[in-house]
Nucleic acid binder design. Structure first.
Lengths: 190, 190
DNA sequence: CCAGCATACGGAGACTGTCTCCGCTTTGGC
DNA sequence: GCCAAAGCGGAGACAGTCTCCGTATGCTGG
């Protein structure tokens, strides 16, 4: 790639990061081009579809989820608390930019999605944390499924503008549903 | 309202129902006006914001959720199965039109939303079913919260194009998280 | 060093969608 | 039938997406 092309590309991503943070992922691409001081043609050559630009921007903070997983692994305490804290971190990060949660969560498991690499980071971060609690979990609890559940909560929180204390009990339900506990036949009244 | 105005209004809603079903809630309003054989001005006078039109269209099938709650109440069997079946019905109905799930779920609890009446129907349907299982539920389980959780699953299912057998286990997790069972200190290993 | 070409730029503009304004038409009470 | 009031509808302003192509620029081999 030519040096000027590389420079333009970098500047576009940089500006897009700001604009997306300000306005969400629906922001006008032409405005991004304007603020990056390139023509729309240049932007669309580098990023033919909106998703490609989102992808580039998203990489950075998907990495933060990965880092949060490491933090989660280093925490001590009972499984319920550890998982709850991790889920809260996950929701917090994934809702950092408006509209990010739906985008990431709905692309989970879609191997043709332009942001599939991001999804893989999320799934594997989730996988690492879940593995560390595996004995306490119900059988058949699967990384993608939990990502979807927690991502669903994140989506609702994001689009509904929910505060952390409204989100926590919902995540509590998910944690309880995921933990094994003694539930032989799931019959509450003996 | 004048008779011709009423006629136009009805035709717009009728056409909108079809178009939304075909193309989701992002469909062009001008096209709806075109197919209803009215001018855009007419459409926008009756429904100043897109939401108002959506609201009118949504009424019909939100009522179906209400009916599904009655069916749920008439079903027999253990709480887990009853709730799971109801949740599945709920998700099925709410995802009937693409994009409907996010819209309804994110408006839950927002008393200024133009579709707040729809949300109330959902919440109260959920409430009726939950009440019928109240003794089996954890304390503090709240109608809106469960609507959000199940709505979150619905949103993910909707936007990710998930099939029923991918959704069921997720709902299973939610049901298990909502049911009381014996979980004194939430300690998995006795 | 510079010629020449592949590469990249950028802006005009086609196209689509949203929404408003206002002159014209229709309705319904008198 | 008359005539306000109510309603209609389309032209068009505005914004966003995306493409095409004439022009400019970085790079490389001589």
């Amino acid at each position: 790639m030519r040096a000027d092309a590389q420079r333009n590309r970098d500047r576009i991503v940089e500006v897009a990061r700001e604009v997306f943070r300000e306005q969400g992922y629906d922001a006008s691409l032409d405005e991004i081009a304007r603020r990056a001081e390139v023509g729309p043609g240049t932007l669309y050559r580098h990023f033919p579809r909106r998703e490609n630009l989102v992808d580039a921007v998203m990489q950075a903070w998907v990495d933060r989820v990965d880092a949060a997983a490491d933090v989660a692994l280093s925490r001590t305490g009972p499984p319920r608390e550890r998982l709850l804290a991790w889920f809260e971190d996950y929701v917090g990060l994934i809702t950092l930019h408006r509209g990010g949660a739906v985008k990431l969560t709905s692309a989970l498991g879609d191997e043709t999605s332009p942001i599939r690499t991001k999804c893989r980071v999320l799934t594997s971060a989730m996988g690492r944390v879940l593995d560390s609690e595996r004995p306490a979990l119900r059988e058949g609890v699967d990384d993608v499924q939990v990502c979807r559940l927690v991502g669903g909560v994140a989506t609702v929180a994001d689009s509904g503008g929910l505060a952390a204390d409204q989100v926590r009990p919902m995540l509590g339900v998910v944690v309880d549903g995921v933990l094994a506990l003694e539930r032989a036949g799931a019959v509450p009244t003996p």
